[in-house]
Nucleic acid binder design. Structure first.
Lengths: 198, 198, 198, 198
DNA sequence: CATGAATGAGGTTTCATTCAT
DNA sequence: AATGAATGAAACCTCATTCAT
C-alpha cells in the first residue's frame, strides 16, 4: 500500500527531472526508468502511458500549488494584499520548482490534449480562485466597476506567465522574486486606478 | 531565381497549414509535401531540416509582423495612441493568421531551441520596438518614472499573449478584437496612472 | 491433497473461458488469474508455463471426450450404429463445450508444438478408437476391402472438423446437431457403398 | 511502376518463407526484411502492418489458386471428372506450395480476423465454385437429390483439409498426391451412390 | 531541379515469468 | 501455499532524411 505510493512518487520525481531538462518528445521512458532506478516496465504498472505520466505530474503539482495558494491566502484580508500574496507565491513556487514548471509552462499548458486533461481542470480551479479574488475586489470598490474581470485575470496571469517564461528561456539566471513587488504594483494599478483620460 | 522564391513560399504556406492544425511532432513532412503538391525530397532542397522549415516560418512571419507594425505606427503620435494601435494590430494580426499563430504561440515561442534561432532574433526586434515606445512614454512623462520598463513590457506582452493563447485553446470561438480597447485601457492604466497608495 | 486438485480445476476453468473468447496470444495470464480469483503467480505453482496450461486443458478435455465416447459406444453393436453414435456424440460434445472447442479446433490442434504435446497423444488415442471401429467394419464386410482405412478416417474426421470449424467461424448461430444424421449418411455411403463405375 | 510490383513480390516471397516456418506470432518483421534483403521500414511502404502483409499473401495465393483451378477445370466435362480434377489439383497445389499452405491451413484460415478479411472473400469464391460443380452434378442426376449440397461440400473440403493438415503436421514426409485417386473415390461414393439401407 | 523509394535508428509498450515476502 | 510487484527482452512501427535516377 504505502510502498506503492512511494514507488509512484519515485517515478514521478524522476520524470519531473527528465521532462524538466528535455521536452516531452525528447524525453525517454528509458531515461526516466534509469533515473528512478527501476525497470522500464515497472513504470507501466503505475501509469497507463507516457502521456499519462506526464499529465499525472501536472495534476499532482497543480493540485499542490492550489493547496499552497489556499494556505498562503488564509487569513490575508483585503484584495490588494491577497493579490500581492498571490503574485509572491506564484513566483516563489515557480522559483523553487523549476523542473516541474518548465514542463508546465512550456509544454503541458500548451498541448492540444491539455485542455481535455485532468491537470487542466485543476488549473482552471486556480483560475477560478483568482477570479473570485478579483470579484471581491470589485465588490469592495477597489477594482473599478467598468473593468471586465476576465480581462483583469488575463492581465494578472498573463504578466506572471510572461515573467516566468522569459526567466525560463533565459536560463533562470536571475532571481525570479526580485520584481514581485513591482509586478503587483503594476497589475494593481491597471485594474484599480481611477480611469485617466489619456 | 524568382522561381525558387515562389517554390519556397509554396512549401511554407503548406507547412503553415499543417503545423497549424497539428503540433510540430504530429506534423509530417510527407503531409506538407502532399499539400504543397511536391515530392518530400524537394523540401530538403529549400530547407535544411524539418526544424529549419518550422523556424523559417517563424522568421518570415515575425519579420512581416514587425514590418506591418512599423507601417501601422507610422504617423501615429503619442505613446498612448501608439500602444493602442499596437494592441489593436497585435490582435488583428493574430486573428487573421490563426494557423501561423498557433504554431508560434503554442510551440515555437516555447521551444528550447527557439532562443538560439533566427525567428527569436526577429521577435526580439519586436520587443525592442515595444521597449522604445515605452521609453518615449517615460520621457514624455506619460509613464511614471518609477516603472521598470522591462516589467511594463511584461505587462503589455504578457497580457496580449495570454489573451491570444486562451482564445486559441478555447477554439477561436469569439472575436479576438472584441476587447482590444479594454486591454489597452488596463495596460495603460497599469503603467501610467499615479501610484495609488493601496 | 484434494485442495490442490480443486485449485487446478478452478484455474483451468477460467483459462478455458479466456482462451475461448480470445486467441492464445491475445489471452493474458493476468486475465485468467483475475477470472479465477487468484494471483498471477499462483498459476505458476500449478502449471509450468502458459503453454503448459493451454495444453493441459487440451489433454484433460480430450481425455474426457474419449472417455465419454467409450461410454456412449458401450453396448452399441454394428459398425454403422457405432459411427452414427460417434458422429452424434462428436457434434453434441462440441455443441456443449464451445469455449474449449474453439481453442482446440482453431488453435491447439494446429499449433506447431501440438504434435509433440500430451493432448496430441490423447487425441491420437481417439483416432485409434475410430480406426478400430473402421477396421471392425471392414472385417464385418460393411466397409469395402479396397478402402484405405486411413483415408476413411480422414473422410470421417475431416468432415466433422469442417462442419464444426465453419460453425465456429460463423458464430455458432445454428444448431450443430441439426445435420448429424445426414453427415453419418454421407460418410457411411462414402466408405460402405459398392464401388460404382463413374 | 514495375519496380514497385517486383519489390512487393520480393517481400511477399520472403514473408511466405518466414511465416511458413514459424507461426504468425513467432515470425518477426525483422527476419522477413533480412530474408528479403531490405530494411524493415521498407516493408511498411508496401504493407500497412504485419497482419496486412500476412493476409495479403493469403489473398494473392488464394486468388492464384482459384484461377488455376479454373484453368484446370476448363474443358473438363462431367461432374465426377471435375471433382477428380479438383481433388488432384488441390493436393498438387498444396504439395508445391507447402510454405504458403502451412500458414493458410494452420493459422490464417482459423484466425478470428480472417472471416472479415479479403482473402476470406477469395476463399469463399472457391467454395462457391465447388458448390456450383456439386449443383450441376445434382442436376445431371449424378448426385442424389436427397443430398444437402452444403454437407457434400463439407465432405469434400473437410476430407481434403484433413488430409493436408495431417500431412503438414507429420512433417510432409510422404507424397501428398499418393492418395488423390482414392480420396476422389470415397468422396464421390459418399455423395453419388444409391442410398444403401444400412 | 525534382523525385520518391529506401533507409534504420529508436521509442513505447506488452506480458510471461520470477521471487522475496 | 499464495501473492503481486518487478522484471526486461523483444517487437512493431514511424518518419526525417538521403541519394540514385
Amino acid at each position: 500500500m504505502v510502498r506503492k505510493r512511494l514507488r509512484k512518487q519515485q517515478i514521478m520525481q524522476a520524470a519531473i527531472e527528465v521532462f524538466g531538462k528535455s521536452s516531452y518528445h525528447e524525453a525517454n521512458i528509458s531515461e526516466i526508468a534509469r533515473k528512478a532506478g527501476i525497470a522500464e516496465g515497472t513504470i507501466y504498472q503505475y501509469f497507463k502511458s507516457k502521456q499519462d505520466l506526464f499529465f499525472s505530474i501536472g495534476l499532482e503539482r497543480t493540485k499542490d500549488f492550489c493547496k499552497q495558494i489556499d494556505l498562503n491566502l488564509e487569513g490575508v484580508t483585503g484584495t490588494s494584499s491577497k493579490i500581492r500574496k498571490l503574485v509572491w507565491y506564484y513566483l516563489f513556487y515557480f522559483k523553487t520548482n523549476p523542473d516541474y514548471v518548465r514542463s508546465l509552462m512550456l509544454e503541458m499548458r500548451v498541448s492540444r490534449d491539455f485542455v481535455k486533461s485532468s491537470p487542466h481542470k485543476s488549473f482552471k480551479a486556480f483560475s477560478k480562485q483568482v477570479l473570485q479574488i478579483l470579484k471581491e475586489g470589485q465588490e469592495d470598490g477597489l477594482i473599478r466597476n467598468d473593468v471586465d474581470l476576465y480581462l483583469a485575470q488575463h492581465l494578472l496571469l498573463g504578466t506572471l506567465e510572461h515573467v516566468v517564461t522569459r526567466w525560463l528561456l533565459k536560463g533562470e539566471k536571475y532571481d525570479l522574486l526580485k520584481y514581485h513587488d513591482q509586478v503587483s504594483e503594476l497589475v494593481l494599478n491597471g485594474i484599480c486606478s481611477e480611469k485617466k483620460p489619456l
